[in-house]
Amino acid sequence: MSLVDRVFLPRKIRLPRVEGLVQWIVPLAIVVVWQVASVTGFVPVRVLPAPSDVALAGWKLLLSGELIRNIWVSFWRASIGFLIGGSIGFAFGLANGLSQLSAKLTDTTLQMVRNVPHLALIPLVILWFGIDESAKLFLVALGVFFPIYLNTLHGIRTVDPQLIEMGRIYGMTDGELFRRVIFPGALPSIFVGIRFALGIMWLTLIVAETIAASSGLGYMAMQAREFMLIDVVVLSILIYALLGKLADTASRVLERLMLSWHPAYWKR
C-alpha cells in the first residue's frame, strides 16, 4: 500500500497544475502567430480575419443573443440525436452480444446498413422530413448508432470467458452475471464507442446544419458566407472545435470515474 502511494501520489499532484497548462501551449501559440500574420498583412484579411476580429464578431453576436441561441440549438440537436442513436446502438449491441439468435437475425442487416455513408442519405432525409428538427436528429442518431453498436457488441463478446465461468460457479443469476461481470467488462470498449460517436455526432450535425437548417451553428456559418462575413464563418468553425473538445473532455471524465479500477486510467 505504501509503495502504491509513493509511486502515484506525486503524479496526482503535478497533474492538474502543469499538464493542464501544457496542452494549451500549442493552440495559444497558433493564435499568437495567426494574429501577428494578420496584423502584418502576411495573411490578407479577406482570406483569414485576425483572431481579434473573430473575437469581436463573437462578442457582437453574444450581445445580440444570436450566438447563445445558435449554440444552444446545435447543442440540443447533438445531445438528443446522440441519446437516441446511442441508446438504440447500445440496445442492439447488448442484444446481439448476449443472444446468438438476435445476432443471427440482425447483425448482417446492420453491417450492410453500416457500409452506407449516412451522410449520403441527406437528400432522402430532406424528402422525408423537410428541413425539420427531426431530419437533423435522424442523421445524428444514425451516425452515432454504429460506433456504439459495434463497440458494445465487441466489448460484450470479449469479456473474459474465465470470469463468466467463475461467476456461474459462484451461483450468479443471469442478471447478476450481467451487472457484475459482463457489463463492467464491456465498459472500456463501450467508452471507445462513445468517443468515436462524439466525433461523428459533430461531423453529422455540421453537414446537416449547413445543408438544411434555419438555425444552429452550421446555419449561422452559411448565413455569414452569404453576407461575406468571414469573421463569423471562422468563429463558427472555432466554436465547433471547442464544443468537440468539451464533449471529449466530458467523456474522458466519465471514463475516468467509471473505469477507476483500470490501471490505464491511474497515470493520466
Binding site: 470470469l163 450468479m172 463492467p184 483500470h262
Partner: peptide, 19 residues
Amino acid sequence: EPRLLPWARVLSNVEVGLG
C-alpha cells in the same frame, strides 16, 4: 488464474464467494 473481477475491490471480490 485467480479470476478476480478487476473492477471490484478486494473485499467485494471475496463477497462473490458467498454466492
